[in-house]
Amino acid sequence: MVSGFIIYKAIMVVVVFLIGLGIAAYSTYAERKVAAFIQDRIGPNNAGPYGLLQPIADGVKMFMKEEIIPDVSNKFLFILGPSLAMLTACMTGAVIPWSSPIVINGVSYPLQITDVNIGILYIFGVVSIGVYGIMIGGWASNNKYSLLGALRASAQMISYEIAMGLSIIALVMTTGTLSLGEIAAQQAGWHWNVLYQPLGFLIFITCAFAECNRTPFDLPECETELVGGYHTEYSSMKLGFYLFAEYVNMFISSAIIATLYFGGYNMPLVGRFVTDPNILSILGVVFMFAKVFFFIFFFMWIRWTIPRFRYDQLMHLGWRIFIPLSILNILLTGLGILVFNK
């Protein structure tokens, strides 16, 4: 029994890890295709049919490139930076519920690596460690552009984390739990949290953009001002790790947005037609990934629509608008609970 449990967990970990990496790899392809389509081009189409082998070609290229570590950099920290970025990016996947449990021979196997009862806090903790990857990398490069990029990244991530956390508090007030598994399960049918927390959702998704350093908040790596931002000095697969971590983060953010606000693996009306819980669970995976893919697409869609903010506008938006707004959201939620539940 115990060994079966360990094997099942190991399989879950490996599968989630591989799927995460696979999706991140193909996000790079999707990003280029989406960018191309939005700009009336056709994008990569030479590596394999429709250019589908492009991520592999890119990966090989990254590995083959010459690796340069600047003389004046701190070597240990220089290598630690991208490793940390990648590590934290991969860690967050552990608490996301991919679907309702599958029951085989009377044993229920939840499709979630681990349902810690403080899932949201865990994600926040890991994400805030992610800042260190960028900060250390930028600092260790010993280059002014890297340093500026790293400073921007850390300032931005720290300020937007506050608003993000506050928007989550309102969500936690309505759900009454911090466990992602339970939050997802509560949203069966039409009870998607986005309907109860529209303002919270807006704040959360905007902060998610900022946390992932995606346009319109991609100031840490804006080419026009900072060459490449915090990864200016990086080359070869270390650069690849930074870029890759960004895509893994995007995938995880999409999964979290889908879980917290868009019902996770739930889809209204499906329960009426399908009753077998196992089939329902497999369908749940499909719905979950459909939602995740939509949000990944949304991330890209936004990127190719909106120009970058100016840095002071970014800080203004974070501190003077989102934080008061999210506090207001908490108050409104409290009021709502008071009026409707009692």
Partner: peptide
């Protein structure tokens, strides 16, 4: 403005490509 922009870009997404 953002929603308007999103509509513009998605229109281009489905347009015939010039390439």
């Amino acid at each position: 403005a953002i929603i308007g922009g999103l509509f513009i870009t998605i229109k281009h997404f489905f347009k015939k490509k010039a390439t």
